[in-house]
Design a protein around this nucleic acid. Sequence first.
DNA 1: ACACAGCGTGTACAATGTACGCAAGCGCGT
DNA 2: ACGCGCTTGCGTACATTGTACACGCTGTGT
Lengths: 255, 255
Amino acid sequence: MADTGGGADAARAERLWANMAADDRPARPVLDRRRIVEAAVRIADAEGLAAVTMRRVAAELGSSPMALYRHVGGKEDLPQLMLDAVLGEVELIEPTGDWRADLRLLSARRRAVLLAHTWLSGVFGAHPPFGPHATDFIECELACLDHLKAGPDTVRGIVGAVDVLVTGSVMREMAERETLRGTGVSRPDAVDAARPYLEKVAESGRYPHFTKIMLAAPTDYGHTDDDEDAAFLGVLDCLLDGLEARLSRSGPAAR
Amino acid sequence: MADTGGGADAARAERLWANMAADDRPARPVLDRRRIVEAAVRIADAEGLAAVTMRRVAAELGSSPMALYRHVGGKEDLPQLMLDAVLGEVELIEPTGDWRADLRLLSARRRAVLLAHTWLSGVFGAHPPFGPHATDFIECELACLDHLKAGPDTVRGIVGAVDVLVTGSVMREMAERETLRGTGVSRPDAVDAARPYLEKVAESGRYPHFTKIMLAAPTDYGHTDDDEDAAFLGVLDCLLDGLEARLSRSGPAAR
DNA sequence: ACACAGCGTGTACAATGTACGCAAGCGCGT
DNA sequence: ACGCGCTTGCGTACATTGTACACGCTGTGT
């Protein structure tokens, strides 16, 4: 019942975005959204995401569980707010003109910040997949690389790089699909739900590049399955190019 | 006293007649770990991971919640078993000798299978991160790419590729850290704990390459933080090389 | 025939998310 | 002054969850 009632879920999604946007609310009280989310992150850091219950967060703040609902809508909104709070820890930079170095630095910083909060990993990343089927798959990959006669380190490097790319790509796309499925609305509706938030972002003037580049896509985000597949394979080819270049450059052994 | 005795007798008699009448009760076990996990996956596919409760799975199998505990230990084990079950759906291949094509095909298949089960995304992938801090970060990245004067599609492609890599890398490493934190043991202990399983894998003889390549690393898996950082930056450089090559090849571009 | 071990079940309890209603402080128009 | 409405925090109550425990049934070895 909870899942099929699309209207209520749509309303919940809308409220989430509204909460995202309303960082500048009056904030009279001792209890406010930032404090709640900070407490939740603190608990998750110390005891894991499972320990983040409404009662536990309330206790951390010395208040009642129900008081939290005046500020955060519900337990399900917490992880998203916590994620954004963590992203706020990343120290940003002024562009130097060397885009590769810039992106390298930013990526390293973001990675470091995320890794400082391991509870962000959900089901997918809860354990390294070492079950029988995972082993079957890796065995198959290794067999495909066998005739390279490269050293174990090199082979591990290639498999690891490819795995990282697949994992990341899948995470990103599943995030979108799960949002759609969770709210039970179609993509256009979801876009409509986020529109007020995005328009507020655009009007704030603080994100000129974001407005110009990311919001430039007209009605569709070009997100058919085929588009996504092509994009994934394009990036994969890029990476394989780089790996192959490195292989042939350094001879039979690498790194 | 006569009352309670009579009640018990009545209940017994009732059960007796029920048994007389309903002979279609499962005489021999229809319950098995594989069936349980399959049911859980079916439910997650249809209604999301949140709908996978012990009671719901039991209902799906027409049995009692507590019966599941004879086979699966507990609710917390389910996601891992479900993940491995999904990985079993990937159709493997015989190596053709073209390792790049092989890895491409395998990656595409694995990606497709994983994407068919969006519930695999946990907290991290539950929503695309569009909160204020995420927007800050993307704005910064875009500013770094601004002087490239490349089209919006190209810029989105670069940012997306880098993001995918960071996401995947972080997922992989958090998986390991979270396992350590969750079990509360140090890395050597965890390695020791997995050793019997890995030795059984090695002795089975079905995974010669896995045994030779992945288990070749001596005592440590070379997993200091610095090693991980270096590996990440290496892969990132590979990808950036590929992206830059593609840029200069196809357009009035950078340098 | 009889004990035993494995499997499914029912009952019971603790922990959780949260709907609902109440109370206290605040600015407001009259 | 005074009610009035709004915001904020709280306490109670209930449905839903995971699972510990003890019991009954079934097939199997002896």
